[in-house]
Design a protein around this nucleic acid. Structure first.
Lengths: 161, 161
DNA sequence: ATCAATTAGCACTGAATTAGTGCTACATCC
DNA sequence: GGATGTAGCACTAATTCAGTGCTAATTGAT
């Protein structure tokens, strides 16, 4: 329901921690000592991040993980993609809509919401691509990236309910 | 995994159809005749939309559903909220983070990703709030609404609720 | 008055996804 | 060689989601 998975959360937490530690290798255990995150699961996530080239791993004693790239070049979008696959908003926006084979959207030809939804999806995606690890660590006002109306300060929406 | 549910898709399709039909009441069956959508499920969705005041319903023969508001005032965000609850991005951004009771985010105090994620979530939310039913029906290039580069700043319109 | 069409309410089943765990092998440092 | 730590694989349990069944209430038409 339009929510990141725990895996992604854990992954982000771990990555942010790595940024904090400079280039040092940090072990899964070390992270779990700080944040209440199931160790085995975090390990699983870290493996995925390694496979996707976001972090480097080093085995053995004193081993662990470290960023394989700069905090600026790793975005939330990258992480989500690595951990959950590329985000789709509706079943019919899963990249290739051509084949009317098995899993693809039945409604396709008549579906009145394809394009607009597609556009929203792109906006979300762009937003995640614009949020780097660096900006997660440094949650300063930041001149541009995240907020598009500069004033996310006054958010009128939340209140009700 | 960051995807709308079928319920929401079906709901949007139905709503768009209602817009097309002007103010006429349309029945669930009628919609299912056009789009390959499971009837009972659509009925369920329509009920939810009714309960949330997005559409009016009329029972009996010739009954059906019609928008309870203007297509401009109903946004994708409204629909998603009605059908899946208010969107959260991570477990810890589920509105009230105060109580450290059962389900709330354990990491809270140490969680390094709360705020930034919160901001992304707001962006997504805003985007959905800025996409009205009308704009789904009229998928014209649209000069501003969706893309955030050009400041969709002007538009706290959603007032109702 | 009766019948057919249609929404309202409630509860349930089955499938898919996600969270989390167990075990073993391999690598590295001391 | 032993302790620490990642790699890989497979599995279980919990949660969420899609879809269905059945019955009651409402309305219009005959």
């Amino acid at each position: 329901m339009l929510q990141l998975t725990k895996r992604t959360e854990y992954g982000l937490i771990a990555l942010v921690h790595m940024v904090d530690q400079g280039g040092e290798f940090v072990s899964a255990r070390e992270i779990c000592d700080i944040y209440p995150v199931p160790r085995r699961l975090l390990a699983e996530v870290l493996k995925d991040l390694t496979r996707n080239g976001l972090v480097e791993s080093q085995r053995g004693a004193n081993g662990g993980y470290a960023l394989a790239r700069t905090p600026e070049s790793i975005t939330v979008g990258t992480v989500v993609t690595a951990l959950e696959g590329p985000p789709a908003l509706a079943s019919c926006s899963t990249t290739d809509l051509k084949k009317d084979g098995a899993g693809s959207c039945e409604v396709e030809s008549v579906c009145p919401i394809r394009d607009p939804l597609h556009r929203i999806r792109e906006g979300i995606w762009r937003q995640m691509e614009h949020t780097s690890l660096r900006s997660l660590v440094d949650p300063r006002p930041l001149s541009a990236p995240l907020t598009f109306s500069s004033a996310s300060a006054n958010n009128p929406s939340e209140g009700s309910r």
